[in-house]
Design a protein around this nucleic acid. Structure first.
Lengths: 138, 138
DNA sequence: TCATAAATGCAATAGTATTGCATTTATGAT
DNA sequence: ATCATAAATGCAATACTATTGCATTTATGA
């Protein structure tokens, strides 16, 4: 994705255009998998850790990224679909974590099946986390 | 659950019977919800943080507890069903997190629906995390 | 009762998340 | 194009969670 398209993404989410934000978006698009703050720190040594931390925060708030639940200590983030907005922020897709290579990716091809909850519960979002072996590792 | 029953649980999982383990099991049974290490530290000031940490570790390994994926920084743990064993450790149940009170609980009544994955993926376990409002908060 | 491996407590360290504040920069208004 | 201003950045410091090493204590089977 070229720089103009990435600028449009930021503008659409009412975020100022800065180098760090453009680079982080680009990295998510290129890697096409879930990333943690640590991943970004490792990739972008030219930016301060706190800047990357706050970049993730602003992307989270504006709906560019979503947090992916995981069992590890550190938070991981994935790109939202085009349909996501701060108002309608339902990330009803399936995330797959490979137990071999550790990669977490969003499976666009798989949608979250309906789930029935007991009486009195109100559903906001549904996350499905599947782990096992990915295409490359199996 | 009385103390003899809790001792049986430990024996069944080939763990030595100690006060901290008995107390932690009891607490999980009483609370009937997911707990973090921090929760245990707060509840059991008479035990060292590391002891509780290792208690969780041994329960995890032996199949008494399972880790619940979540978006927060800290790991949360829930009791396994009776059917769980170190060998067959599939936690295919639904976890519900209330956005109001923060409680994470296992919904025994709801089972995880089947999910279809792209070609080449091997599924090990499936976790479903639903959030919204729980029975008490809605 | 006793030897031994396992469990505990304490101290220390590592890793991740978060805030305050001074400085720099992007942006809209002029 | 310039400028005022709010937003973003970098640095320093701190908080919280996770983890390991080691000496001491304890549960367990012989």
């Amino acid at each position: 994705m070229n720089i103009e398209e990435r600028k449009v993404i930021l503008k659409n989410h009412k975020l100022r255009i800065t180098n760090s934000r453009l680079d982080v978006i680009d990295h998510f698009l290129t890697m096409n998998k879930a990333l943690s703050l640590g991943d970004l720190e490792h990739t972008f040594t030219e930016y301060d850790r706190v800047t990357l931390y706050r970049t993730l925060g602003s992307f989270l708030e504006s709906g560019i990224l979503h947090k992916i639940p995981n069992e590890e200590g550190s938070a991981t983030y994935g790109l939202c679909h085009e349909t996501c907005s701060p108002e309608d922020h339902t990330h009803n897709h399936v995330h797959f974590k490979c137990n071999q290579c550790g990669e977490i990716a969003c499976l666009d091809g798989s949608s979250v099946p309906a789930v029935s909850l007991p009486e009195g519960y109100q559903v906001s979002t549904v996350n499905m986390i599947v782990d096992g072996l990915c295409k490359n590792c199996s």
